[in-house]
């Protein structure tokens, strides 16, 4: 409970679950959810280093807050793109989005 390795491995498992989902899913919203999981794993890593190694504990928290802001912006953009794509091709499956295929 109080060692760096515990938290690093929790974050690593979370990251790998997110990566697996990102590769496996074909629904764009499912892929977005997996990306959120991976971003959370990264934030957890920042906080673990912040708690056990860093000289100033405020810096890691600042980094995690920036990650959250970027994640919110990314989710807004991604969801609006998904909606636009759905209106064009009536599907949110990535395999259906092949208009640019040569």
């Amino acid at each position: 409970m109080n060692s760096l390795h515990t938290y690093l491995f929790i974050a690593l498992v979370l990251f790998c679950i997110g990566l697996f989902g990102l590769l496996k899913r074909r629904s764009l919203i499912g892929m977005l959810i997996s990306v959120e999981l991976m971003l959370n794993a990264v934030g957890l890593n920042f906080m673990a280093f912040n708690r056990f190694l860093a000289p100033d504990p405020a810096v890691g928290q600042v980094a995690v807050l920036f990650i959250m802001g970027i994640a919110a912006a990314e989710a807004a953009i991604a969801l609006s793109l998904i909606l636009a794509l759905f209106r064009k091709i009536r599907s949110i499956n990535v395999e259906q989005a092949r208009q640019l295929k040569g």
Partner: peptide, 25 residues
């Protein structure tokens, strides 16, 4: 950060995703 996490991810992002699901497939 725990409070911010709950506010931003559950309060904003999850709700936005639910809206997108509702409006799409």
């Amino acid at each position: 950060l725990a409070m911010m996490e709950i506010l931003i991810y559950i309060g904003a992002i999850s709700i936005a995703i639910v809206f997108a699901i509702m409006l799409s497939q």
